[in-house]
Design a binder for these strands. Structure first.
Lengths: 130, 130, 130, 130
DNA sequence: GTGGTCTAGACCACC
DNA sequence: GTGGTCTAGACCACG
């Protein structure tokens, strides 16, 4: 849980956001569950509390969590997906970059589809929560 | 060609790199073809030559182009793919993020696969270069 | 430390890269140690921060250092050597040029071997890290 | 003979200089022998005559060849080596860079010495012309 | 405070 | 003409 690579070029707070979302998707974190407090998590991961704070703010902004003042941060139970055109573009861009890179590494259509399939299985739950 | 979003958070030079690689993949730019000169492109896009320069250097570092001093920058004609473990991880991470985001937007397994399929078609040539 | 010849034809940033790598090899800089900040070193050497920046980026690209955003640049502690065919050729070319030049200065086989031996001693630690 | 890599970052004229010197050392070109004319060589290698010219000038500057006006460029027969301190430093720097790079690729003392030995054999004649 | 990006403008080596 | 390097000075994101 919460795999962070401090030497990566993507900001730590962003890695945290991704990590939490991935955890929820995999079922490691349940909807309604309480996340560790900012200070607690900061100590656990030897990170600056500001960094955790920023990640939690971002998660709340994305409606992935809700914060109850004085109580803590909880995974939202009723997340209402909105398919903004912008966000769809973002996702497409991620996939597009992936495909372009994969091509440049010599992967072919089938290889790419196989890789996607494996990832879909790894992130189980994707196909089963409609 | 060369779609740049000046207000995006991803660096301009990086967008240029992605754009060129995508263009090659789509067949808009042929192997062996000459890219615009640094100054020329800078004027065309009203960017600083240094920014273009940085993009071109990165492309060369990735062996996507070769540069002949005093002559110009050319799309590499014989690209030898190398599959580092590190690079595979990078690509997987791109796809993984895409899948996680897609899920949060309410997409289901089939939606994702369909999206990938469309992108593969858009980036034609991917399946035909073995 | 950081001997730079401003009038040399090899770029300053490249000299910096070589200098740091040599320093590490000689043990003047320890693995894990922090390098001076970009601005600090720029002031120390009366160079433009961009020049230092370029050198540090190149070092990172070569996995000689890691950079922690907002914290600084550190000498990589666990360097994993990779022997590309290309890189071996580069090194051989360096030695070959050296030998050719040495010959033109009247050095003989033994002289060259002696010189190499001295250099290996000067760069102590080379023989002791298996 | 005259292996040129136009995509290399070292100038073509410099590659030519190195190539001629290496050829002489290997005995492929004899002292007193005539080099191809500037125009001839330019046509042979599809290079700009200016480039050949510059290489020949550099060779003459280094006393490796002599140019007889209206006759051509010849390999000097009586080369008198001078061991300037500066030139020795240059050679040492070449070897030093080679050693540093070799180390970073995981080569050990013996590996390096073996490589040097092989190169000395490849460039035969080095040990036999005193 | 740190590194990362960008602009503006200059100079050089190479072909 | 080309790409490559360097300076000067600005702004931003990150921790």
């Amino acid at each position: 849980m919460f795999n962070i690579d401090i030497s990566s070029s993507t900001p730590i707070y962003q890695q945290l956001v991704d990590s939490v979302k991935e955890g929820i998707l995999k079922g490691l974190i349940e909807p309604g569950e309480k996340l560790p407090s900012v200070r607690e998590l900061a100590k656990m991961m030897t990170l600056n509390p500001n960094t955790i704070q920023k990640a939690y703010q971002e998660l709340e902004r994305q409606k992935v969590t809700v914060t109850l003042r004085g109580k803590g941060t909880y995974v939202s139970s009723n997340y209402k997906p909105r398919k903004d055109e912008d966000r769809i573009m973002e996702v497409k861009d991620l996939f597009k970059k992936g495909i372009v890179e994969a091509h440049y590494m010599g992967f072919k259509r089938e290889d790419i589809l196989k890789m996607i399939d494996e990832l879909l299985k790894e992130l189980e739950g994707v196909g089963s929560n409609d």
